[in-house]
Computed example of a mutant assay.
Amino acid sequence: MTTPNLTVTDIKSFIGSRDFNASRDFYVALGWQVIYDSDDLRVMELGNHRFYLQRYYDRQWCNNTMLHVAVECVEDWFAFVKNAFTTNNFAGGARHDSEIGDEGYAQTFHVWDPAGVLIHFAQFPTE
């Protein structure tokens, strides 16, 4: 009997978009790159990590979707994101109205994309 190969090579989430192009522009302004682009699906990459941005919107689903982005320096990311919101006029409901806070497990701040997806930027404590 042979042992099955159950190796997982990756896991990616699908993220909805109310306005497909506005969501792309939002994520690109925050540092993601579009590495695949079609009429209804984009692969977005940040730091060798990817998700699928799709041309599909369900308000309840998007408002209950979260991305967690672990970073080395939450202060630098906070400044970068704050600047992106200052220099871009994001469409839809994109907003950045949180400060860096201690969530117990990490220092975090939050951003909402144009479809209402909540993004947590988090720096874990170093040991």
Rank of each mutant, 00 (worst) to 15 (best):
T2R: 14
P4I: 09
P4E: 00
L6W: 05
L6F: 10
L6E: 03
L6P: 00
T7K: 13
V8D: 01
T9K: 14
D10N: 14
D10V: 06
I11N: 08
F14G: 03
F14I: 11
F14Y: 14
G16A: 07
S17N: 10
F20M: 12
N21G: 02
A22C: 02
S23D: 08
S23F: 09
R24I: 11
R24Y: 02
Y27Q: 07
Y27L: 09
Y27F: 15
V28E: 14
A29C: 06
A29H: 03
A29W: 05
L30N: 05
L30I: 09
L30H: 04
L30V: 01
G31I: 06
G31A: 12
W32F: 15
W32A: 15
W32H: 12
I35L: 14
D39V: 00
D39E: 14
D40T: 07
L41T: 13
R42P: 00
V43P: 06
M44S: 03
M44E: 09
M44T: 10
E45Y: 07
E45F: 09
L46P: 01
L46I: 05
G47I: 08
N48K: 15
N48E: 15
H49N: 14
H49T: 05
R50Y: 03
L53C: 11
L53N: 10
R55C: 10
R55Y: 08
Y56F: 13
D58R: 04
D58C: 05
D58S: 04
R59H: 07
Q60M: 10
W61M: 14
N63H: 12
N63W: 03
N63C: 04
T65W: 07
L67D: 00
H68N: 13
A70E: 11
E72G: 15
C73Y: 03
V74H: 00
V74S: 04
D76R: 12
D76G: 01
D76T: 10
W77L: 02
W77E: 01
W77Y: 07
F78D: 00
F78N: 01
F78V: 04
F78M: 05
F80V: 04
F80D: 06
F80H: 10
K82N: 06
N83R: 15
N83S: 10
A84N: 05
F85I: 03
T86W: 06
T86Q: 15
T86P: 04
T87S: 12
N88S: 10
N89A: 10
F90P: 01
F90R: 05
F90S: 02
G92A: 09
G92L: 12
A94T: 05
R95D: 10
H96R: 04
D97N: 14
S98G: 03
S98C: 08
E99N: 09
D102T: 02
D102V: 01
D102S: 06
G104V: 07
G104T: 03
Y105A: 01
Y105H: 12
Y105P: 02
A106Y: 02
A106L: 06
Q107E: 13
T108D: 10
T108F: 04
T108Q: 14
H110K: 12
W112S: 05
D113N: 07
P114W: 14
G116Y: 09
G116I: 12
G116S: 07
L118F: 02
L118E: 13
H120N: 15
F121H: 01
F121I: 01
F121C: 02
A122F: 00
A122Y: 03
Q123N: 05
F124D: 05
T126P: 03
